[in-house]
């Protein structure tokens, strides 16, 4: 078992023939991800990167059996692409696109309600199950296979965390980049829950940012369900001023509960291993595993 994507995932790329789609689809294929084709409306029937191009997601599902989609469609059309994928019966949609209007995402997320589909992102680096499938834009080599799951709002900070985990002699089961937008398909708690239920995951790294209350909700859920696995947590933006958007659309301190300090306090109270310095994620994970009596060898 693994989370969201594995070697059996049949992946299609929406926005396949654009420059971003082309580059990252190439990287994913090179990594060994089972990319079965792509979608670019109007270019159906062509071949791109030796894979078939389809006019619609429905066609890709029908002809290539696609069940996972990764979206590189530009912001103005991305919410539509998400809804098209859900309508076609795709089970896991991973939206990389940054800059989707909040109103569009609100409608798309509402459309997905009650459907048998998981949306990861948008504005995220994607999902990787090392050695099986990379459905995202992360550098694959950083993620060595192992038993630590990662949930993170940020891209490069996820790579940083994975690198420290690997340098600590551990490895990654699945890393989920949930995205840095105000509205995302799978908030922190839902992503952590997947890894808590995953037999191949021993412990979790949970990385958040200022803004919103996803981390607090996740931390409370972790405590309520009995802290089943050790969780190392970090919140970026301890030095960020209030009221300023720090790069990510969602990374802004509006109220008192949005601050890194407030979130870290809640996480500590809920029994998470919180690090003040992002440089200490690896070693803190080793300590947490030792405390929990999990064998790391």
């Amino acid at each position: 078992m693994s989370v969201l994507v594995n070697k059996d995932s049949k992946v299609i790329v929406q926005g396949f023939t654009g420059s971003e789609g082309t580059f990252h689809a190439g990287q994913m294929i090179e990594y060994g991800t089972n990319v079965v084709g792509g979608v670019t409306p109007g270019k159906g029937g062509q071949t791109h990167l030796d894979k078939p191009v389809f006019n619609s997601v429905a066609e890709a599902v029908e002809k290539a059996g696609a069940n996972v989609s990764i979206i590189f469609v530009p912001p103005a059309f991305a919410a539509d692409a998400i809804m098209e994928a859900a309508d076609a019966g795709i089970k896991v949609i991973i939206a990389i696109t940054e800059g989707i209007p909040v109103k569009d995402m609100m409608v798309a997320k509402d459309y997905l309600k009650g459907k048998d589909v998981v949306l990861i992102g948008p504005n995220c680096p994607g999902v990787i199950t090392p050695g099986e499938a990379k459905v995202g834009i992360m550098p694959g080599f950083v993620f060595k296979k192992g038993r630590i799951g990662i949930v993170s709002k940020s891209g490069t900070l996820t790579y940083e965390a994975a690198d420290q985990i690997v340098k600590a002699g551990l490895g990654i089961s699945t890393a989920i980049g949930i995205g840095g937008d105000p509205i995302i398909g799978t908030p922190t708690k839902e992503a952590v829950e997947m890894l808590m239920n995953d037999e191949e995951t021993d412990a979790i790294v949970m990385i958040g940012e200022i803004g919103g209350n996803y981390e607090a909700l996740a931390a409370r859920w972790i405590r309520e369900t009995g802290n089943k696995k050790p969780v190392v947590g970090f919140i970026a933006g301890q030095t960020a001023p209030a009221g300023r958007r720090m790069g990510h659309a969602g990374a802004i301190i509006g109220g008192a509960e949005d601050t890194a300090e407030a979130k870290m306090k809640i996480m500590r109270e809920c029994g998470l291993h919180v690090v003040d310095s992002p440089a200490n994620i690896g070693e803190t994970m080793l300590e947490a595993l030792k405390k929990a009596g999990v064998k790391t060898a």
Binding site: S154, G155, E209, G237, A240, M246, H248, A251, S277
Partner: peptide, 16 residues
Amino acid sequence: VNGAGLAMATMDIIKL
């Protein structure tokens, strides 16, 4: 820094 999350984390490192 490259990336918003890592940029915020780097600011935190500077403070620490």
